[in-house]
């Protein structure tokens, strides 16, 4: 059996407790600071007592919705990241890097390009696109010489994303009408999303997690190798397929809600493994807390760096994520999961 806590620095309960505290603090800060004139002190007044109308408006109509959306998107991307890494046994696997997010956003761009404009349609389309991206990952990972080399799998994903981005740009060039709508599906953001984005993305994220929960045990066994997992009574192929379906639902939901946000799925499992060791039964809980923490942290920075303007959140997550990617690749042996 897997030794619980092998390579862990913290006990699971200790790590979970720290993550909860960090997440709560970030939620609080996310309500307190912004790019506008309503500073932390005014916000605190508005939160504690009645405060002034402007501050109350900014907190309840602008900061609260984006904070809640950040929580849902963070949970979805954090969960998707850690499961995708387990299912592909690749520490570089990340929905953004492997082309799953690109599949989701491309599907939406294609739908808009073909004339669809209903926002509700986007969720289904994005999940289908993410599913197509996941199936491609599954196919590529079966190719001898590519599947067992983490870096090559990422290269395949980069090529796939590159093709989809090129076609998206082509649609953008040809279709002036949807240019404004499509731009969002290339950058991604938490601010200014329609109010119902939260309402339909929450069940989407919950559904994805429900699909994944029964698969955590089999995925953990998969880490011992296909033969061992089969010997323990699991079905590796079925487990992989189920896991990637769950990942597709999560990534599709997150993309439909906030556009493509890269690197969260890479950073979260990386930090989670450092905290509690490589076993997915231990990392999954921590990841579901770390995901929203990193999203909120990036979102807070995106409001503060270029005040009174804002940066797209994807820029910040890339700044955080790229060094992690380099660190993982540069470490002499890439740990196989």
């Amino acid at each position: 059996m897997i030794q619980a806590g092998k390579g862990a620095r913290f006990s699971l309960s200790g790590a979970l407790f720290c993550c909860v505290v960090v997440l709560l603090v970030l939620c609080f800060v996310s309500l307190l600071v912004g790019a506008g004139e309503v500073g932390p002190v005014r916000s605190l007044h508005a939160l504690l007592s009645s405060g002034d109308g402007e501050a109350r408006f900014v907190i309840s109509e602008l900061r609260l919705p984006r904070t809640l959306l950040g929580l849902v998107v963070g949970v979805a991307l954090g969960g998707a990241g850690v499961v995708l890494q387990s299912a592909t046994r690749n520490p570089l696997a990340e929905p953004g890097l492997l082309g799953v997010s690109a599949g989701a956003s491309f599907a939406v761009v294609l739908a808009i390009g073909l004339g669809a404009s209903a926002a509700t349609l986007n969720l289904g389309v994005a999940v289908l696109g993410a599913l197509a991206g996941c199936l491609l990952v599954l196919l590529v990972s079966q190719v001898r010489g590519v599947g067992d080399d983490p870096v090559r799998l990422v290269l395949a994903g980069a090529a796939f994303s590159g093709i989809l981005t090129a076609i998206s740009s082509l649609i953008l060039l040809n279709d002036q009408r949807s240019a404004d709508e499509i731009r969002f599906w290339i950058i991604g953001a938490l601010a200014g999303r329609p109010q119902d984005a939260l309402i339909w993305s929450t069940p989407g994220a919950l559904l994805g997690l429900l699909i994944l929960m029964p698969l955590i045990q089999p995925l953990s066994a998969l880490a011992l190798g296909e033969k061992m997992a089969t010997g323990l009574g699991h079905h590796p192929a079925l487990t992989r397929f189920g896991a990637l379906t769950g990942v597709a639902v999560l990534v599709g939901t997150a993309t439909a809600a906030a556009g493509p946000i890269a690197f969260i799925g890479l950073v979260v499992p990386f930090v989670a493994r450092r905290l509690v060791g490589p076993d997915i039964r231990r990392t999954i809980g921590v990841s579901l807390l770390l995901g929203p923490s990193i999203i909120l942290f990036a979102d807070i920075l995106s409001r503060l760096i270029v005040r009174p303007y804002e940066l797209p959140i994807g820029v910040i997550t890339a700044l955080i994520g790229a060094p992690v990617l380099i660190a993982v690749v540069r470490s002499h042996r890439i740990p196989t999961l």
Partner: peptide, 12 residues
Amino acid sequence: HSDPLSLENLSR
């Protein structure tokens, strides 16, 4: 033109 203005500063 400017970068995207924060929605918090829309009054400007």
